[in-house]
Simulated scan of single mutants.
Amino acid sequence: MTASKRGRASGASTPMILAIIAILVVLGVAAWFLIIKPNREAGAPAMKQSSASQGAPSSASSAPVNVASLTTDQLLAEARKALNDQRLLAPAGNNAFEFYLKVLERQPNNQVARDALRETFPFGANAAEQAINQRDFGEAQREIDLLSKADPENYTLTILRSKLDAQRKLQDHEQQAESDKLAQQKRQAAAQQAAAEQAAAAKASAQPSLAEAQAEKARQEAAAAAAQRKREQASAAKAPAKPAPVSIQDAVLTHQVKPRYPTAAVRSSQEGWVDVEFTVGTDGKVNDAHVVEAKPHHVFDRSAVDAVSKWRYKPALRNGKPMAVTMRRRIVFTLGRQR
């Protein structure tokens, strides 16, 4: 009877074990297609773009695409193709950023587009800076505007706008200086020609003595020199003042709160890290703290965000005035200490 009972119990538990195994297999397949595969597809183009940005620029000059007529899947495919062709921000109407932004316009929570924009933002900022250095100001402004749509609070945008403004003012100053130099050279040539004509006319009409001629020449040279000095003084007075330099100071941490080590992680001897992105306001307080990346996921997230939200900073300054900036910090959790 005992053996019979054991056989029935074993027979009843076998279907349950098989059912549990089947459920685990289904969950694994779903995780692959819904989470792992999309993230790999978004990450791979970004890595290709990073490598390509260090080499020779692409020669692609594709025509603008009718974005409104494309489906979401087609937009994502065009964005990946643009990344592979190194069309991150240009040309207008046919670049990866515009495709991903259009996806988010239709589906604000599309994680593939969000991750791709976040990962490629630094490379886009480098492209915009190159346009500034080449003094292609119209293109640089368009690219900065495009970057601001992807991450309007990013501190890098403030730096790019400051560089663009400084380069424009420097170009204006150089053009004005060159114009003044040409005008001055023309005035000098006219003055020298007039002095020569006056000297020739005086010599031909009066035939003065050598001493008188020399004295007249000296007077003419002195008058020309005086006139030249006046013109130089007038030109210096009209010259535009040099543009005021832009001074930017980073936010400084003044009060730090250490994160609490989760009890479950202590019991299981788990360690890891969490990347937290947040905004430091003009009052030095931390706002909008959120997790960007973590390993392992969802173990230390809450503890890291709670701690960072209590930090205090001396606010960042632009020409002495406080301004809000976006920052990113990694919180590391190791048994015995956190940092």
Rank of each mutant, 00 (worst) to 15 (best):
T2L: 14
A3C: 02
S4F: 13
R6N: 04
G7P: 02
S10W: 14
A12V: 09
M16C: 10
L24D: 06
V25Y: 13
V25C: 15
V29E: 08
V29D: 07
F33Y: 11
F33G: 02
F33I: 07
I36N: 13
K37W: 04
N39L: 11
A42V: 10
A44K: 11
Q49F: 00
Q49E: 06
S51Y: 01
V65S: 02
L70R: 12
T72N: 03
D73S: 14
A82G: 03
N84L: 01
R87E: 00
L88P: 00
E98A: 15
E98S: 15
Y100F: 14
E105F: 08
N110S: 05
Q111F: 03
L117I: 02
E119Q: 12
E119C: 04
E129S: 14
F137A: 07
G138Y: 03
A140I: 08
R142T: 05
R142A: 10
L146V: 04
K149Y: 08
A150Q: 01
P152G: 14
E153P: 01
Y155C: 01
T156Q: 14
T156W: 05
L160G: 05
K163T: 03
D165V: 09
K169E: 07
Q176K: 15
A177Y: 07
L182C: 00
Q185N: 10
K186Y: 02
R187I: 02
R187V: 08
Q192C: 12
A195E: 05
A202W: 06
K203E: 06
S205Y: 06
L210H: 11
A211L: 13
A213T: 05
Q214K: 12
A215K: 13
A215R: 15
E216H: 15
R219I: 07
A222R: 15
A222V: 13
E232L: 15
Q233A: 15
A237D: 11
P243E: 04
V246H: 04
S247E: 10
V252N: 08
T254K: 14
T254V: 13
Q256H: 12
P259Y: 05
Y261L: 07
P262D: 04
A264P: 06
V266E: 10
R267Y: 12
R267N: 14
S268G: 10
S269T: 11
E271F: 14
E271H: 11
D275H: 10
G281E: 04
D283R: 06
D283S: 09
N287M: 12
V291K: 00
V291I: 09
V291G: 02
A294K: 05
D301S: 10
W311R: 09
W311Q: 13
Y313S: 03
R318A: 12
K321L: 10
K321M: 11
M323P: 00
T326G: 01
T326M: 04
M327C: 11
M327I: 07
F333Y: 09
F333Q: 03
F333N: 02
